[in-house]
Write a protein that binds this DNA or RNA. Structure first.
Lengths: 344, 344
DNA sequence: TAGAAATATGGTAGCGCTAACATGGTAGCG
DNA sequence: CGCTACCATGTTAGCGCTACCATATTTCTA
C-alpha cells in the first residue's frame, strides 16, 4: 500500500526558543557539557566554557529553568508566606529575606494568606509543588494538614515573627515579654490606669500575646488591665478612633498602650488635633519602632522590633542549612529594644 | 554467563512523594484521566472524578507543578519586577497585582532591581526561564537587550507607573502632568517663590518628570523654579533635612514642593519641631496621597496616585489577554487627584 | 614506568507530567 | 439502520534538562 500509516513525529515544542541542545551544537560539544559550562563551570575546560558562552550569546539562549528543576528535582525558589502585605512589618521581613536570597541566586515566591490558615495550607501545597528549596512562613499557627506537609517535606522551614514550639527553624522575638517590658516601663513612669488597645486579635494574635504580657505585669502589681478591641483595619484612622473610644469608656485612663505604632501614631496625631497634651492629659505607647513615631512631637515611646534583621537571619539560617552546614541554634531570638520617647 | 550486565534501571526519583501515576493506580484509572480529573474536571465523568480525588487524599498527593509546566509549556507565574521594596508606592502596586492574580490562581514571582536596569534584564531572563505567563515591570526604561527579550517573548508585558512609549501594555499616570497640576495649584494660591526638593532623580526619574512639569508651569508664568536634590534615601529624615536645606539656600522661599509625601511629611513634622507655622512661614506640598499626610495638622496638600488600582488594572489587562479576549486599550491612564490640605 | 588519581567529555535514561492522537461506546438523526 | 457527533478514557511520545555511569586523556605518585 502506498498510503501507509506514517507514525509522524508529533512535534509539540513549547516555543521556538533555542534549547540547550542547539547551543551545544553551535559550540560543537554535547548537551551535557553545555549544561556543565553554565551550571558548574569549574568542571569544564576554560576554552570549552568560552565556546559555550559564545554560542549562548549567538543563538540567544535563555535556560529553561522549569526543565532544569524537573531534572534535578530542585528549584531555586524560596517560598515566603505572610498574612498581609498591608502591614509594614511583613514588608520589612520580606525585604530582609529578599536581599539575602537574591544575592545567593534564589527567587522569592510570595504568598499572602490574608490571615487565613486554610489559605496558608493551600499556598504550602502549591509551593511544594514548585519544588521550592525552603519555606518561610509567618507565625507558628497552622492547620494540622499544613503541619504535616511542612514536617514531612524534608526542606528547611523557618517560622518567623514569634518564638515558640516550632516545626524546624524559628526566628523571632518574644511578644509576651515585649508586652511585659512596656508595661513595666509604664509602671515605672508612675502610671496606674492603663488601657490596651488593639485591632483584630483573632488575626493578629501576636498583639494578643503582647497584651497577655502587659496584663500579667499589671496583675502582679495588683492593677486592672482593661482592653479595647477595635473592629477596623489597623492604621492611623483606627488609632484616632481608638483614642476616642478610650476617652469615652475610660475617662480616667492615664496611658494607652497601643498594639502597634500605626495605631499609636494615629492617636498621637489625633490628640494634637484635639488639643490634648501628651503625656500630661494622656500618655501613649506603641510597638514596632516605626520611623514615624520618632518624628512626631512628642516622640512616641515604643518597642523597636528588628524586622529586616529577622528576614536576614531567617535567610542565613536557610542558606546554611542548604549548604548542609548544620545550623547550630534552631531557635533564634532577635530581641527587641525599648525606645523611650516623650509620649509617656 | 551467570553474571550478565544487568542494565539496572537507575532510579533517581527526586523525592518519595507520590506521583500522579500512583494516584491513578489507586483510583483504577490511567494517569491522563487522573490528570484531567484534577485540571479539566469537566472532561471526566463525575464518579471517576470523585474516585480520583479520593485517591489523591488517600495517598497524600501533591501535584508536581514543575513537571506540569514543562509538559504544558506554561506556568501560572506572573513575574513582577519593581525597583525597590522600601517604597510604599511599589508595595501597594504589588498588593493590587497580588490580590487580583491570586484570586485567579496565579502566583507572583517577585523581583527587585534596586533601580538597576541591568539587574532588571537579569531578572527578566530568569523569569522567562520559568515560563512565566506574563510580566509586569515598573517603568519604561530598560536595557536594549531587555527590550528585545520582552518584545520577542510573546507573553503579555505590562509596564506600570508611568505612561509613554510602551512595549506592549501600559498602565500608569502622567507624572509630568501631575507636576504641572501641583504647580498650577501653588500659583493659584498666590505663591511665587517655590523650591522643588527631591532625592536621587537618577533613580526615581519619575520625580524628575514631575519636576519638569512643575518648572514648565512656573516658566510659563515667568518664574524661576529652583531645585534641590538630597543625597540620602527618601524618608521622613530626608524631608526634615530638605526643609533645612531650603531655609538655608532659599530663605525667601514661600513653598516647598516635595517629590513625595514621605519627604513632605518629614518636613511638616520637622517644621512643627522648629515651631514654624505652616503654611504662613513656609508652605509644603507633596505627592502620593499617603494616609499620613491627611492625619498631620495641617493636612498635607498632595496628589493622590491610585497605586493599588494601578496594580489591579494591570492584572486585569493581563488576565483578559491571557483569556485571549483582545485588550481594547493598550494604554490605560489611571489618573490622579489633587488633595488640597491646609499646608498650602 | 606502571598504576592510581584527577580531569574532561560523552551517552543514556529518566524527572512527572500533559498534548496529540486513538479507541470504543452511546446518543442523535434522517 | 447506517451515519455522524460526541463523550469518556487510554496509549504514546515527548517537554528540556541533568543525574548517573562510562570512557578517554592527562597528570601525579611511588
Amino acid at each position: 500500500m502506498s498510503n501507509q500509516e506514517i507514525p509522524r513525529t508529533r512535534r509539540r515544542r513549547g516555543s521556538d526558543q533555542p534549547t540547550l541542545k542547539e547551543v551545544a551544537e553551535a559550540a560543537g560539544v554535547s548537551a551535557i557539557t553545555a549544561s556543565r559550562a553554565l551550571n558548574t563551570p569549574e568542571r569544564v575546560n576554560e576554552t570549552t566554557r568560552q565556546r559555550v558562552l559564545e554560542a549562548v550569546e549567538r543563538v540567544g539562549y535563555v535556560p529553561n529553568l522549569v526543565a532544569g528543576s524537573l531534572a534535578s528535582a530542585r528549584s531555586r525558589f524560596i517560598a515566603v508566606i505572610v498574612p498581609s502585605l498591608s502591614n509594614t512589618v511583613f514588608i520589612e521581613v520580606i525585604r530582609g529575606l529578599q536581599t539575602t536570597f537574591e544575592a545567593h541566586g534564589y527567587q522569592i515566591l510570595l504568598g499572602n494568606t490574608d490571615y487565613d490558615i486554610e489559605r496558608e495550607h493551600r499556598l504550602v501545597r502549591t509551593f511544594l509543588g514548585w519544588s521550592c528549596s525552603a519555606l518561610v512562613t509567618a507565625g507558628l499557627r497552622h492547620t494540622a494538614a499544613c503541619r504535616d506537609l511542612l514536617v514531612n517535606c524534608d526542606k528547611p522551614v523557618v517560622e518567623v515573627m514569634e518564638l515558640g514550639e516550632a516545626l524546624d527553624l524559628n526566628v523571632g522575638l518574644d511578644h509576651r515579654e515585649a508586652g511585659r517590658c512596656m508595661a513595666r516601663h509604664l509602671l515605672e513612669r508612675g502610671y496606674r490606669r492603663t488601657v490596651f488597645v488593639s485591632v483584630g486579635t483573632d488575626r493578629d494574635y501576636r498583639a494578643a500575646m503582647r497584651y497577655d504580657g502587659h496584663r500579667e505585669v499589671l496583675a502582679a502589681a495588683g492593677l486592672d488591665a482593661p482592653f479595647i478591641e477595635l473592629d477596623q483595619p489597623s492604621g492611623l484612622d483606627a488609632g484616632a478612633a481608638g483614642l476616642d473610644r478610650v476617652r469615652d469608656a475610660h475617662p480616667a485612663a492615664e496611658v494607652v498602650h497601643f498594639a502597634n505604632d500605626d495605631l499609636a501614631a494615629g492617636a498621637l496625631l489625633h490628640a494634637q488635633r484635639l488639643g490634648l497634651r501628651v503625656p500630661d492629659d494622656i500618655a501613649i505607647a506603641g510597638f514596632n519602632g516605626l520611623p514615624l513615631g520618632q518624628h512626631i512631637t512628642p516622640r512616641l515611646t515604643t518597642i523597636r522590633s528588628p524586622r529586616e534583621t529577622m528576614g536576614r537571619r531567617a535567610a542565613e539560617q536557610i542558606l546554611r542549612r542548604l549548604d548542609d552546614k548544620r545550623v547550630s541554634r534552631r531557635q533564634l531570638d532577635v530581641g527587641f529594644e525599648l525606645l523611650v520617647g516623650e509620649s509617656t
